[in-house]
Design a protein around this nucleic acid. Structure first.
Lengths: 129, 129
DNA sequence: TTTGATGCAAAGTATTTGCAATCGG
DNA sequence: CCGATTGCAAATACTTTGCATCAAA
């Protein structure tokens, strides 16, 4: 794969943020540095970067999100504000295969917890729930 | 919520299959019994059934899938044929919170393993991998 | 009868693609 | 130079929505 300014800028911006942006959000971030970049280029490059394992796609419903951190970790999705957080200290989660797969070759996993974030709980006066 | 023939047929068909259909696939199943049902009605009802917890949505990439079985279980997605299976005997998985959440109220989880199913491995002569 | 639910079609979003121009090696 | 990559715009999905009509209670 030939290197390109667009692809390098895309992955740099993605690794800079912790917000797990949607494609259009990342597009706007990249456009601050490359005003003429097109949305199609962002889609094309994210696809390639994902195939080579340089970025991770987070399946979270209507629009998917991207993560520049490909180390093994899990996410939390707020079903009200739709933001996604990394789970580290706040919530530790143990995921392990307890039997060997016979019918599938497993090469990845995606663990998504969902619910409401603190801000949304408080904003709706639901923190007592 | 008032009962309706469409909604009842939708959930019946969804509970009948084990394939975790996409919305359009479920639409075709339901249409065999209700030829005049519209795709919009299927979307509307799946949305309501999901909100009341009668069906589960599986986030698995481009198109989401639905599951009539809402008991706690996890899924496997084949990244070649895009089919989704329930994980039960073949692969047992242990998922547990190891700390109490401080910043989030968690009400659900979604665990998706992905890779290649046996059929796709064999079909591509990759079963040795 | 009342009002929620539906069919239909149009609108709204998200994503992909064709192609000529541009860039990287 | 040559072929990969891009910008642009058009084409494709996919999903939601407005509204007149239908149907459940």
């Amino acid at each position: 794969m030939r290197r390109s300014k667009a692809r390098e800028t895309i992955i740099e911006e993605l690794q800079k943020v912790k917000t797990h942006p949607r494609v259009d959000e990342l597009f706007h971030l990249v456009r601050r540095r490359m005003p003429r970049i097109s949305l199609g280029t962002v889609y094309r490059n994210l696809d390639r970067l994902r195939h080579e394992g340089a970025v991770a796609e987070i399946f979270c419903g209507d629009f998917n999100r991207y993560d520049g951190d490909t180390s093994r970790h899990h996410h939390f999705l707020c079903r009200r504000c739709q933001r996604v957080w990394d789970l580290d200290g706040q919530v530790a989660l143990k995921v392990e295969l307890t039997t060997q797969p016979g019918d599938f070759r497993i090469d990845g996993e995606q663990v998504l917890l969902y619910g409401l974030c603190r801000e949304c709980l408080e904003g709706e006066g639901l923190s007592h729930l």
